[in-house]
């Protein structure tokens, strides 16, 4: 049982390492977010699975709570890290971070312009509203 746990933790560490190398080697925000979400999410989840295996493999059940916490953490990371990556990329695009020049396609441009216009309209509306309230 401990052998399996160590193997899982080792594999998880390897994936985390690849994620970090990707963070350095890939060109722009969007590509880096790809490496950061995929490799690091799976790497960390595999490590937590290793911790859970180690905890449940121990006789007596004295450290079961650790295993349960590890599993709950893995579920939370799986649910939240894609949302965070999505928010970072969307925010980066809307605030004008350009795609890497080697990118072959950009279908998001028109939609992003729409969103920016909407936000600008909402902002001017709010400013006008405040002005009328102040006067």
């Amino acid at each position: 049982m401990p052998d399996i746990a160590y193997w899982l933790i080792g594999v998880g560490l390897a994936f985390d390492l690849f994620g970090c190398i990707g963070l350095v080697r890939l060109p722009d925000v969007y590509n880096r977010a790809q490496a950061a979400t995929k490799c690091v999410t799976l790497g960390t989840c595999v490590m937590l699975a290793g911790v859970a295996v180690a905890a449940f493999g121990e006789s007596g059940g004295a450290i079961w709570p650790m295993g349960i916490k590890a599993i709950i953490c893995a579920v939370f990371i799986l649910l939240t890290s894609p949302v965070a990556a999505h928010a970072i990329c969307r925010g980066a695009y809307l605030s004008g971070v350009p795609l890497w020049p080697g990118s072959v396609e950009d279908a998001f441009g028109p939609r992003a312009q729409d969103i920016r216009n909407e936000q600008a309209a909402a902002q001017t509306q709010r400013a006008e509203h405040e002005e009328t309230q102040a006067s």
Partner: peptide, 18 residues
Amino acid sequence: VALRVIHPDVPIRPGIVK
């Protein structure tokens, strides 16, 4: 992704598709 990252040329063709 890991193979692409450690490949010497970083073989990617990124872009946003709909």
